[in-house]
Structures are given as C-alpha cells and as structure tokens.
Computed example of a mutant assay.
Amino acid sequence: MRLAILAYDQISPFMLSTPLAVFGEPFLASGHRVEVCAAQRRISATGGLTIEAPLPLAAAREADIVILPGWRDANERVPAAITSELRAAEARGAMVVGLCLGAFGLAEARLLDGRRATTHWACVETFATRYPEVSVDAGALFVDEGQVLTSAGIASGLDCCLHLLGRISGAAEANRVARHLVVAPQRAGPQPQLIARPAIGNTSDRRITDVLEALRADPAAPPTLDELAHRAGMSRRSLTRHIRARTGGNLGEWLRRVRLARAQELLAGGTRGLEDVAARCGFPDAAALRTAFRTELGVTPRQWLARQRVD
C-alpha cells in the first residue's frame, strides 16, 4: 500500500516522524511504501531544522492513504495547495488522515462535514466554532469514520496510526510495531485525551509495568486484585491509583481492552469460532465478546474483520 505524508513549511519534526515511525521503519514487515510530499523541495521545521522533501505534493495523487501530520497554527488557514490534494484523495476513494491540527486541513477541505472528528484539546473550541458542520468529539484520542480519520493532540497521532496499521495490515502487525515503539497498543479511540501519567523510571512505575505486561501476556485468567497488589508490593488502593494513572481507567476497563486486542489478533490471524476466541481471551462467552466489540469499536466482530483489508 502506498502512503503519502503531506509536509509543509514550519512543520513539527515530531508530527512528521509519527507516521514515518509507524509505517516506514525497517522492522515493518508489511512492505508499505511511504513518501513525503511538499509544495517545495526544501522546507523549514521547528527547532531551526531544514528538511528536504523528496517529492512534490502532486505525487500524493497516486497514494492509497494521504496523511496530513498536524498544522503549524490553528489560527492560520491550511492553504489550497494542501486542501485540494486532500479533496482529490477522498474523491478517488483514498483514505485521508488528519493528525492533531491536521484535522483543520480536512475540515477546510470539507471532508468532515456531517462526520465525527477530533483535534488537539486546546483547539477544540476554535475548531467547533469555525466548522459547525463537524460533530466534534473533544474527548477522543482519535476518530475513525471509515475513509476519514482524525486524531487528537501530539502523541495520540501514534495511536491513530497504529489503529490504521491494524486496519490495513491486521492487529497482530500493529501490536508488533507498537511493542517496537514501546507504546501501548490497546489505547482505544474513545479513551480520554487528558490522562495524568507518572514519571517514567521510578520503582513503582516499573512494578506496575511488570504487572500490566504479565496480564497482557495472559489475559484469560488474571489473578485477583489482592494477588496483583501483593505481586507489585503495594496496597490495593495504591495499585488501583497507579493503574488509573497509567491507563486512564480502572483495571477492569484496561483488561477488557487488552482482551479485545487479543481477540483482534486471533480473528485477524484466521482463528474461527467466537466461543473459542472468547475463551482464549478471557471473555465469559461469545456474547460478552460481541458486547466488547460493540462498546469499544462500535462494530460486531464480523464487521470489524471485514474492515481489516482495504482494497
């Protein structure tokens, strides 16, 4: 699959690197072709950097997926040279993605009219006022509307890109890349944008990481909260507080998402029989698995599986 990333003057190197990290790293087994396109050959980037874009914007017209990674200022309109490429991509059936303030570009191109979308929390009010035709989900990490996707601020672009990788290459590939990037593969779109996170590297954080990684490895039959607290060397209350700070919710919510991610891996890998998948992932039965899919993803397992390959 061919992906085009639209670069522009004064781009954030982090925003540009987000889709490159997910789709363009050498460890990616899916073989996607990733190209950076810009209106001019040499563009400036924040931090005093200069970037040479290998291809003109027009090269994006052959892409299956077109990504606008952020925008430099919410108060500055995205230029027609970029919005026209976004419209052309949507018109020919390509997927279009706006990361962070890139949602402003998609809205300016009228691709979000009548659709749900999100953007950086600090610019939600500006976005909603300027584009009243868009249904703004201020709390989501990313919003998948099928052909059009938007993400919230900065790091949530990784979540959106990993989700997109899961759609085009399967959940197993997305989870594998997430582990290489050392990011959580289970962060779902509806998860809140603003989550307090502990400083990386302290002892408590490492112990919580060990507990969560053990549960991720075998989510089917987790120990009780008391057993987990004993394993982590802390009280139930302290464990619960640390888990909420790390995941944005309680242990049950996080574990449901982990089980769902495992179910996605099994289904994408060809496992058949929802009862078997449910048992292997820790769901009581197939009905509970279907409920989890509808609650977290808004689709049934069958519908989700049908969307995993983009023509």
Results as ranks from 00 to 15, higher is better:
Val34Ile: 11
Asp64Ala: 11
Phe283Ser: 11
Gly233Trp: 01
Pro301Trp: 01
Leu158Trp: 00
Leu141Val: 14
Gly153Ala: 14
Gly70Gln: 06
Arg294Pro: 04
Ile195Asp: 03
Asn75Tyr: 03
Val97Trp: 07
Val34Leu: 13
Leu228Glu: 05
Thr129Leu: 13
Val182Lys: 11
Asn202Glu: 06
Ala81Thr: 05
His180Asp: 02
Leu106Thr: 08
Gly146Lys: 03
Arg176Asp: 09
Val299Asp: 07
Arg241Ala: 15
Ile11Cys: 13
Leu20Ser: 08
Val124His: 12
Gln186Val: 13
Leu266Tyr: 07
Asp137Asn: 13
Val299Phe: 06
Ile195Pro: 02
Ile168His: 07
Gln186Trp: 11
Ser30Glu: 15
Gln40Ile: 03
Thr300Asn: 08
Asp218Val: 06
Ile43Thr: 09
Pro13Lys: 01
Thr46Lys: 10
Val182His: 09
Leu57Ile: 00
Pro219Trp: 06
Ala63Lys: 00
Ala184Asn: 15
Asp144Gln: 05
Arg179Gln: 13
Leu228Phe: 09
Leu99Trp: 12
Ala140Gly: 14
Leu55Gly: 02
Thr224Arg: 11
Asp159Asn: 05
Val66Gly: 04
Gly252Ile: 10
Ile51Gly: 01
Gly233Tyr: 01
Ala217Arg: 09
Asn202Gly: 12
Ile200Ala: 06
Leu149Ser: 09
Gly157Lys: 01
Ala152Glu: 02
Asp137Tyr: 09
Ala268Pro: 07
Arg110Ala: 13
Ala178Gly: 07
Arg130Tyr: 12
Asp73Ile: 03
His163Val: 01
Thr300Gly: 10
Glu296Cys: 10
Ala155Phe: 02
Gly146Glu: 07
Ala138Lys: 13
Thr209Cys: 09
His230Ser: 15
Ala263Val: 05
Gly47Tyr: 02
Leu255His: 08
Tyr8Gly: 12
Ala152Ile: 02
Val136Tyr: 05
Arg2Phe: 06
Val36Lys: 05
Asp285Trp: 03
Pro190Gly: 12
Ala63Val: 01
Ala128Trp: 10
Arg302Thr: 12
Gly98Glu: 08
Ala38Met: 05
Glu296Thr: 10
Leu162Lys: 00
Arg116Ile: 06
Arg237Gly: 15
Ala268Leu: 05
Phe283Lys: 12
Ala128Asn: 11
Cys100Ala: 13
Ile11Trp: 09
Cys123Met: 13
His242Glu: 14
Ala188Asp: 03
Thr203Val: 13
Ala63Gly: 05
Gln186Ala: 09
Ser17Ile: 00
Ala29Leu: 13
Arg262Asp: 12
Val36Pro: 05
Met234His: 04
Gln191Ile: 04
Gly273Phe: 08
Pro19Tyr: 03
Thr126Asp: 15
Gly98Thr: 04
Arg72Glu: 02
Ala263Asn: 06
Asp64Gly: 15
Ile195Met: 02
Arg33Ala: 13
Arg262His: 15
Trp304Tyr: 14
Ile82Leu: 13
Arg115Val: 01
Arg307Ile: 04
Thr46Ala: 05
Ser44Phe: 03
Ala53Glu: 00
Gln147Gly: 14
Leu274Asn: 07
Arg197Ser: 02
Phe283Glu: 07
Gly47His: 05
Gln147Tyr: 07
Ala155Ile: 02
Ala232Phe: 01
Ala74Ser: 10
Trp254Met: 14
Glu85Met: 06
Leu212Arg: 04
Glu108Tyr: 08
Ile208Asp: 08
Arg236Gln: 15
Arg241Gln: 15
Thr129Asp: 14
Gly93Thr: 07
Ala128His: 12
Thr126Gly: 15
Val34Gly: 06
Leu297Pro: 11
Phe14Met: 08
Glu125Pro: 10
